[in-house]
């Protein structure tokens, strides 16, 4: 697959004043989905998201066309989002893919929570995340693409089933499953559009504009609004700033104030704990693709050793509840 050549041919359809695509480069990270940055000859900065040939889709991952539709729906609901320029068709020779505007900013959590560059926007960021989540959760659900529905108990069962298949003996995860099962909240009265991966890494932060885009809608579904609020508080995305639970840049009350009420801190803390447990199981799952020979990269081997970060977080959460 020659991505650069395919984008060059596609360019005039992406912008009427463009004759080709230049500076085509693959960005690092992401093994299940590729992200490419490129410019058009008329200087329009763009991003291509595509699924590599033969890549196994995560069980719950959405088709990229649905992801594009959700970005459009979120933007319509008032969430900052990149504008989707084109959803690829087979004639484009890019496989399953779409093109969106490239936003200016930073997604790397380590920089967002620490660098001087972001010192000016950090103080308002947790509140802003709360506001943006409230808008996403208020999006009308009738017009969305088909999405899975989930709740706390269902998620616990799903992840425990995955854990059992992995044949690991992790007493901290075992204890966490039983603990969370005993305190799981009932399903929400009205399931809302949940982003499903709202955390550092998927939030485009501009040094002056703050949160300018919510990215990576691959795990979106209908469910409990507290899920997104809890996920951004998982310690794994605080990049060492563990004293600031909301993303490593703010406090619970700022996040909840921005959200505008209606959700208890207990419910957020439950979903934060379930988030740590889910991330622990995901780390084991990704390691499994190394163990089975499906992906023998050092990345897949090493991610198994991140399970222990979720275990130490879970011990802390179990001790303090």
């Amino acid at each position: 697959m020659d991505v650069a050549a395919a984008l060059d041919r596609l360019a005039p359809r992406l912008s009427p004043t463009a004759t080709g695509a230049v500076n085509v480069r693959r960005l690092s990270g992401g093994a299940s989905l590729e992200t490419w940055a490129f410019d058009l000859t008329d200087r329009t900065p763009l991003i291509l998201r595509r699924r590599p040939e033969g890549a196994a889709m995560r069980e719950t991952a959405l088709p990229l066309a649905s992801e594009a539709a959700l970005i459009r729906a979120a933007a319509a609901a008032g969430s900052p989002a990149p504008s989707v320029v084109h959803v690829c068709t087979p004639e484009d020779s890019l496989g399953e893919a779409y093109v969106m505007r490239r936003l200016e900013g930073e997604t790397l959590g380590r920089r967002i929570v620490r660098d001087e560059t972001f010192a000016g926007v950090r103080p308002g960021l947790a509140r802003r995340c709360g506001e943006v989540l409230a808008r996403i959760h208020a999006a009308p659900t009738e017009d969305l693409p088909d999405l899975a529905i989930s709740d706390a108990r269902g998620e616990l069962e799903r992840y425990e089933a995955i854990y059992r298949q992995l044949d690991a003996r992790r007493p901290i995860l075992e204890a966490a499953f039983r603990w969370l099962e005993a305190i799981a909240p009932p399903p929400p009265e009205r399931p809302v559009l949940v982003h499903g991966d709202f955390r550092n890494g998927n939030l485009m932060i501009h040094p002056e504009g703050g949160l300018v885009g919510v990215l990576d809608w691959e795990l979106a579904h209908l469910g409990d609004p507290a899920e997104d609020l809890g996920w951004i508080c998982v310690n794994s995305w605080r990049f060492g700033e563990w004293r600031r639970p909301a993303g490593g840049f703010g406090d619970y009350d700022e996040l909840l104030d921005g959200y505008g009420g209606g959700i208890s801190l207990d419910r957020v803390r439950f979903w934060q704990s379930l988030g740590s447990l889910k991330w622990g199981v995901m780390c084991l799952m990704m390691y499994q693709s190394f163990a089975t020979g499906q992906d023998r990269s050092i990345e897949r081997a090493m991610i198994g050793r991140r399970t222990s970060e979720t275990e130490i977080d879970l011990v802390k959460l179990m001790e303090t509840t």
Partner: peptide, 27 residues
């Protein structure tokens, strides 16, 4: 008694896997 064991286990393994992880300081 269980939590005491789990706590020691978590501290031991993070010392190998990721000694700089913020969760250790938090615990």
């Amino acid at each position: 008694a269980l939590l005491a064991h789990l706590r020691a286990t978590a501290i031991g393994q993070i010392a190998i896997d990721q000694p700089g992880y913020g969760g250790l300081a938090a615990l």
